[in-house]
Every structure is written in C-alpha cells, then in structure tokens.
Amino acid sequence: MFQPAYPIRTERLTLRPVAMDDLDDMYAYQSRPDVVRWMLGAEPRTREQSRASVLAMAGEDAWRAEGDCLTVAVVSDARVIGAVELVWRSERDRTAELGYVFHPDHGGRGLATEAVVALVSWGFDEVGLHRVFGRCHARNEASARLMTRIGMRQEARHVQSYLFDGVWADQLVFAVLAGEWNALPRSRKG
C-alpha cells in the first residue's frame, strides 16, 4: 500500500484526504458548468450527486492495488478549493495518471500548480514512479498550460480520438519521467 504522510503541506496549501465535511466546498465548484465543461460526460452536479462524489473520493486515500485512485482535497484558508488525483495505471511500469479540478475563483495565483507539483513529487519521491502522464481536451488551454508549466512535455495529439458532447474531439497527452522531473529546477516545478 502507498499512502502519503498526511497532511502534505506546501507553502500555501494543505493536501489531505477528502472528508464528508468537504461537501459544501466541493459542491460549490462541482455544480458549475464552467468547471465541468471539459470533463467527459460530466454535467453540473446536484447536491446529492456531489454528496455521492465526495463519499467516493473519501475512500481514495491510498493506493492498495493497481487501478486505484488517490484523491486529495486541496485546502487554502480552511476551504477546499479543489482536488488532485493520481490513478495507479501500472504497477509493473510504475506509471500514474494525473487529474485535477479547481474552483475558478482561486485561479491565477499558482495554487493549482503548487498542489499538482506536491502530489506528483510524492509519486516520484515516495512511491518511485517512473512516469506520470495527463490528458486533456485539445481546447482545454488552461489544463495544457498547467501540465507544461510543471515540466511535462506534450507527447501526443490524438486526433478525433473520442466523442465529446457528440462531436469527435482531439486529446492532448502530456508526460514526465522521474529523471526529467528530478532534473527540473525547483522554480520550474511551481
């Protein structure tokens, strides 16, 4: 089993397991059309749908087996402003997939970058991952910029690779290897 030593603290944030007490904060962004806009098949959530989502995430506090998702709540000024996750895609290949979602009211201050860097660093430094990758809709410029900013390289553009709201869409794939991550200047990683 792999589990961070909670809480993970950064200069301005605390990353910790999701709890049911986070419902109000998470519902505040899960219910927004501008937040779920780039999520495949996602629609703004009702409060009950958010409750189910938070309950599911509350059980994602560690990696117990390949395929598990580790999700952490990102806390700033005693409020949950987003969530970051790593999905354990391959034990043998030591690979994980990055995901994140943040309340737009907290954008533009580098908080998402800081949180993502903290969890990716845990994956490389504590778990011994070899590769972390992330995917996004090709028009999701903010997500692509975040992955580039933390030192991930664009590896692929899968042209018309999936149906998104009934239309064929391109998907961008970004990745970083452990050696590349460790060679990045600290300032580049957030």
Score class of each variant (00 low, 15 high):
10 T>E: 08
10 T>H: 01
10 T>L: 00
11 E>Q: 07
11 E>S: 00
12 R>G: 06
12 R>S: 10
13 L>P: 08
14 T>Y: 02
14 T>E: 15
15 L>C: 07
15 L>P: 05
15 L>I: 00
16 R>E: 14
16 R>C: 10
16 R>N: 11
17 P>Y: 02
17 P>L: 03
18 V>Q: 05
18 V>R: 01
18 V>K: 01
19 A>N: 04
19 A>D: 06
19 A>M: 04
20 M>Q: 15
20 M>E: 15
21 D>N: 05
21 D>W: 07
22 D>T: 10
22 D>E: 06
23 L>V: 09
23 L>N: 00
24 D>C: 06
25 D>Y: 03
26 M>E: 09
26 M>I: 15
28 A>D: 14
28 A>I: 09
28 A>M: 10
29 Y>D: 01
31 S>G: 14
31 S>W: 08
32 R>H: 00
32 R>T: 04
33 P>V: 13
33 P>H: 13
34 D>C: 14
35 V>D: 07
35 V>A: 10
36 V>H: 07
36 V>A: 01
36 V>T: 11
36 V>F: 08
36 V>C: 00
37 R>H: 15
37 R>I: 10
37 R>V: 12
38 W>Q: 11
38 W>C: 03
38 W>S: 09
39 M>D: 09
40 L>H: 00
40 L>K: 03
42 A>E: 12
42 A>C: 03
42 A>Q: 02
42 A>S: 13
43 E>G: 12
44 P>T: 13
44 P>G: 13
44 P>W: 00
45 R>H: 05
45 R>Y: 04
45 R>P: 01
46 T>N: 04
46 T>F: 07
46 T>V: 04
46 T>G: 06
46 T>H: 05
47 R>E: 06
47 R>V: 02
48 E>H: 05
49 Q>C: 03
49 Q>S: 03
50 S>W: 01
50 S>C: 08
50 S>G: 08
50 S>L: 08
51 R>W: 10
51 R>H: 12
53 S>A: 11
54 V>T: 07
55 L>G: 11
55 L>F: 02
56 A>H: 14
57 M>S: 13
57 M>R: 10
57 M>T: 10
57 M>C: 12
57 M>D: 13
58 A>M: 14
59 G>M: 13
59 G>A: 13
59 G>K: 14
60 E>G: 07
60 E>S: 07
60 E>F: 03
60 E>M: 12
61 D>S: 10
62 A>T: 10
62 A>G: 03
63 W>M: 11
65 A>V: 13
65 A>I: 08
68 D>M: 00
68 D>F: 09
68 D>K: 04
70 L>F: 12
70 L>M: 13
71 T>C: 14
73 A>Y: 01
73 A>M: 11
73 A>N: 00
73 A>D: 11
73 A>S: 11
74 V>P: 04
75 V>F: 12
75 V>M: 06
76 S>D: 14
76 S>A: 14
76 S>Q: 03
78 A>C: 06
78 A>V: 12
79 R>I: 05
79 R>Y: 05
79 R>P: 05
79 R>W: 02
79 R>C: 02
